[in-house]
């Protein structure tokens, strides 16, 4: 232990993020404090993810039904993300990654809560049973795969499936949906996307380091990517159909998803 008597670092002005050395940077961006500052900016004054004063756009019965179907699928995805992120806390290799994943656990719990609440606002009496009835088989298969990876205590594979594959999928789908959604749903989605961006960044950085340090693991993660591809494609197809988007959008969303994978050099 150092015997140096130091004043707490926060006695002085906290340095700019990019002035920090690598380990101090990681400590900062994985911290509760960092998460706290980030979400305070976009969750303050909201209730269940949106401005409580915002008036609802009128929705036709058909649009409302379609939105309910989409939100049920989102709930299934967020429920999977919540359980996987919680499982990843115990697999994480150090305190900083455990703390970051704890912030992600709370984020995923919030997403599930705001989507369930939105279903209630749309008149669904029992949102949880509606989710059980309507969630698409491809999303449920994705959920099963994530649970299997966590149960197998395979940190890198579970991290890839959750923070790269699932988060990238949600990022592109929610971002696309927010552009055409009613105002209340759009506000909810825009805030969820901000969280997803943070989770993807963590996944890409952690996994990027892992793949650099353990090059032998690359083929294992690559094989998992190939295995997940058909689930991703099927989920995208379901979402495009539920949202009533043109078929070309599925290709575009698929392209955006694959960009994330490409950054890790796992395509091909």
């Amino acid at each position: 232990m150092s015997d140096a008597k130091r004043r707490p670092p926060h006695d002085t002005i906290r340095p700019e993020l990019h002035d920090l050395d690598k380990s101090a940077f990681l400590e900062e961006v994985h911290s509760f404090e960092f998460w706290f500052q980030a979400v305070e900016g976009y969750l303050a004054e909201t209730t269940y993810g949106h401005d409580p004063e915002m008036a609802e756009d009128p929705l036709s019965d058909e649009d409302r039904e379609r939105l309910i179907g989409v939100l049920c699928n989102y709930c299934a995805g967020e429920s999977a993300a919540l359980e996987t992120a919680a499982g990843l806390v115990s697999l994480a290799p150090n305190r900083m990654t455990k703390v970051f994943l704890s912030t992600q656990v709370a984020d995923e719990g919030r997403h599930l809560e705001v989507f369930l609440h939105r279903l209630g606002e749309l008149g669904v009496e029992n949102p949880e049973s509606e989710v059980a009835k309507r969630a698409s088989p491809s999303m449920l298969a994705f959920k099963d795969k994530l649970a299997e990876l966590v149960a197998g205590r395979d940190w890198a594979s579970a991290l890839f499936a959750q923070n790269v594959a699932l988060e990238s999928l949600e990022f592109v789908v929610f971002g696309r949906h927010a552009k055409t959604a009613d105002r209340v749903t759009a506000q909810i989605l825009e805030r969820v996307v901000k969280d997803e961006r943070r989770h993807m960044g963590f996944g890409e950085n952690e996994l990027g380091r892992y793949l650099r340090d353990t090059p032998d693991s690359r083929s294992r993660i690559h094989d998992l990517r190939v295995e997940l591809d058909h689930l991703v494609d099927a989920t995208l197809a379901d979402t495009v159909r539920h949202l009533g988007l043109p078929a070309d959008d599925q290709k575009e969303l698929g392209r955006m998803y694959r960009e994330s994978i490409e950054r890790l050099g796992l395509l091909g």
């Binding site: 912030t103 656990v105 709370a106 809560e113």
Partner: peptide, 28 residues
């Protein structure tokens, strides 16, 4: 965090999500 995957209902899972974050904050 481990109890989230053992919880029998979504409401308990979501509460435990906040508790997970509280405990991480305490560690920090």
């Amino acid at each position: 965090s481990g109890l989230i995957n053992a919880a029998p209902d979504e409401g308990s899972k979501r509460f435990l999500a906040t508790q997970t974050l509280d405990e991480a904050r305490h560690v920090e």
